[in-house]
Amino acid sequence: MAKRPTTNWREDVAQEAEALAAGALDPEYACMGALFPEALLVATDHVLDSFEAELPGLGGAGDARVFAVVERVVLALNAVDDVHCGYETDEREQLCGYIDEALTEHDVDVVALTSRHGLGRYELTDKWRNW
């Protein structure tokens, strides 16, 4: 299954905490806890839980249904970002990649889907995405 970006972010926070505890990192250079506060991670996971619950059966669904699922997850992530201001360039790329990979794992041909609508593969979320 596609690895959630929040899993990566939690790992980064934990690694930094270990480095701080071991004295291998100057606290002045620590930033992961500030970049990824628990409230952001929990809110993002809640959105991704809902997204993942909608994935089964999408492979045989029509384009409108797939786009509706993508729209819902993107709008929900917009709301999280509005509150937490947490998605920078790398995080955006990870979230978009995760959405693409999760859809692909559930037999949605993202390339064909986006192509049928005059979009590039990596434009799947652009219509709704504010982050």
Rank of each mutant, 00 (worst) to 15 (best):
E105Y: 10
V66W: 01
A19T: 12
A79N: 09
R129A: 09
R4E: 00
T7M: 11
R129F: 02
W128V: 07
T7F: 03
H46T: 12
R72N: 07
D63K: 13
A30F: 01
T114R: 11
D12C: 12
A21V: 10
V69T: 03
V66N: 02
E93Q: 13
E38G: 12
A22S: 11
R65D: 12
L41H: 07
V66M: 04
H117A: 14
N78R: 12
V80F: 06
A22E: 07
C31Q: 14
T104P: 03
K127D: 06
D81P: 13
D12P: 15
G23H: 10
A76Y: 04
A64W: 01
P37N: 07
W9A: 03
A112E: 11
R129P: 00
A53F: 04
S115A: 15
Y29G: 11
E93R: 15
P56R: 14
A34Y: 04
T125F: 06
A19S: 12
A19R: 12
E52K: 04
T7R: 10
K127W: 08
G118M: 13
L113T: 04
H46C: 03
Q94Y: 12
E54Q: 14
Y87N: 05
L20Q: 05
H84L: 09
Y98W: 09
A68Y: 10
D82W: 08
L75W: 01
D109S: 08
A64K: 12
R72S: 09
G118I: 11
G23A: 02
L124K: 03
D109T: 10
G57Y: 05
A76V: 01
G23Q: 10
D82H: 13
M32H: 05
A76S: 13
D100Y: 13
E16M: 05
L25F: 02
V73N: 01
R92A: 09
Q94R: 13
E71K: 15
D12E: 10
W128I: 05
T7Y: 05
D45F: 09
A19V: 15
D82L: 06
L95F: 09
P56W: 07
M32G: 01
V47N: 01
R4W: 00
M1H: 07
R4V: 00
A34S: 12
D82M: 06
E123K: 08
C96V: 11
A61F: 03
D63H: 14
L95P: 06
C96P: 00
C96D: 10
T6L: 03
N8F: 09
W9F: 12
A112F: 04
G120S: 13
H117F: 11
R4G: 00
A53T: 06
R65A: 13
A39H: 00
